[in-house]
Design a protein around this nucleic acid. Structure first.
Lengths: 224, 224
DNA sequence: AGACCATTCAAGTAGACGTTTGAATGGTCG
DNA sequence: CGACCATTCAAACGTCTACTTGAATGGTCT
């Protein structure tokens, strides 16, 4: 096998391809999206992606086999987590690429998220610029474990299964304040629901265009 | 199908996954690596990746089907090119991820490239900082079509199949100058050969750690 | 030690994918 | 028009993959 050999070149690129292929199955893509929010046990993950525990374990191990996720044992539970920030980088690059180039994606996104024309959106730069102001309130609409793992400084936690508690939270917020809700990312429904509920109450509410992983990756401040 | 529906969520992530899967086959990964240097006809690409024209066409169309590559007709030849810079972004992210996390990759790379311990390496920042100096000479060791499609300003073109011409080129270079060679990227053998040849002639020669796509992506100046 | 639980393994099925081979298409040029 | 050429299609092969089911492993807690 000489240097620059065809067979070993093919093998090398098969190696690169195994990484892409690991992200190339829908359920594993969902897993990666969830894990970019924080670690999960097998059972929790199975619930998140709506699959059997056996199949979820199978996929998690497939990701572990190529080094994309790492494990941690606690009691008799195994916690899976991202092995590196670069996994999130690659996943976001793939997702952005799909959004830009795959022409069926808009339809798929609309089928899942519904039409979003009624939702006002604000981007991360805007929020970061206005964070010092007193007239905006940031709402973290993710499960509380994810809020605890890191959130935008000063954000209030309103978990998605406790959206009805928004009533109480509203009492603490000045009617003049603009409310900005965020959740897991652009393909997450939680913030949409919060914004719609708030808008129906006559509040000025907008959705942050991106979620925690994107915020963190862009160098936004994070509080734990 | 309610908003936030399980089936449509799965379909959406299957959509994302088709993009990753498109990069998840070794031969297609090679195609993407080559196309990030510039457009190719089907036949040229078949030669680059060592596959039959039929199979190459098949893979190119698979990439086109998900929007990653675009085509252009000229005479009776079809030229394929990257559909967007984001394809290169995603590919580089995948490749970097594989390099960091896939523990078999070092062996695969060594099998293809050989041991590189004898090669001195310099990174893009260093080169960019020293480009104004007179004491470095940059060598572009890629096929001339790729050089023409864009190269580091001031670089001399020495195509890989004309490495024997280095003798003449050397005559024009002061013996004190440091020579820096680059080619397609970190997994490309061309620059290695040039550096070894130059080193054997007693020249101070180093290899740029990255290639044209990475240089361009990092915002380095490009001349056409 | 024994019961219990989360996780993993193993076997099996249906479907998708990469590659080859040989024929068909759709364009150019004499 | 007809010969020619690059490219694409279609069929077929073996291989791999996702998911299901049911059993086995390897921990923890009483």
């Amino acid at each position: 096998m000489a240097r620059g050999d065809r067979a070993s070149k093919d093998a090398l690129f098969d190696g690169f391809a195994t990484i892409a292929a690991a992200l190339g199955a829908g359920r594993r893509a969902e897993i990666v999206e969830v894990l970019s929010q924080g670690e999960r046990t097998v059972e929790e993950m199975a619930g998140e992606i709506g699959q059997s525990v056996a199949n979820t374990s199978h996929h998690l191990r497939a990701l572990a086999r190529v080094g994309l996720v790492a494990t941690r044992r606690e009691g008799n539970r195994v916690h899976y987590r991202m092995a590196s920030d670069r996994v999130t980088d690659a996943w976001l690059a793939i997702r952005a690429l799909a959004a830009e180039r795959l022409d069926t994606l808009d339809d798929l996104a609309e089928a899942y998220l519904g039409l979003r024309d009624d939702l006002d959106v604000v981007d991360s730069q805007d929020v970061q610029r206005r964070m010092a102001d007193r007239d905006i309130v940031i709402l973290d609409v993710r499960p509380s474990a994810e809020y605890r793992a890191g959130h935008i400084p000063g954000a209030l936690s309103v978990p998605p299964d406790e959206l009805h508690r928004l009533d109480q939270v509203l009492g603490q917020i000045s009617p003049d304040a603009e409310i900005i809700a965020y959740c897991r990312g652009p393909y997450c429904v939680y913030a949409d629901e919060a914004v719609r509920w708030l808008a129906s109450r006559g509040r000025m509410a907008r959705r942050l265009s991106e979620g925690m992983p994107e915020w963190r990756r862009a160098g936004g401040p994070v509080e734990v």
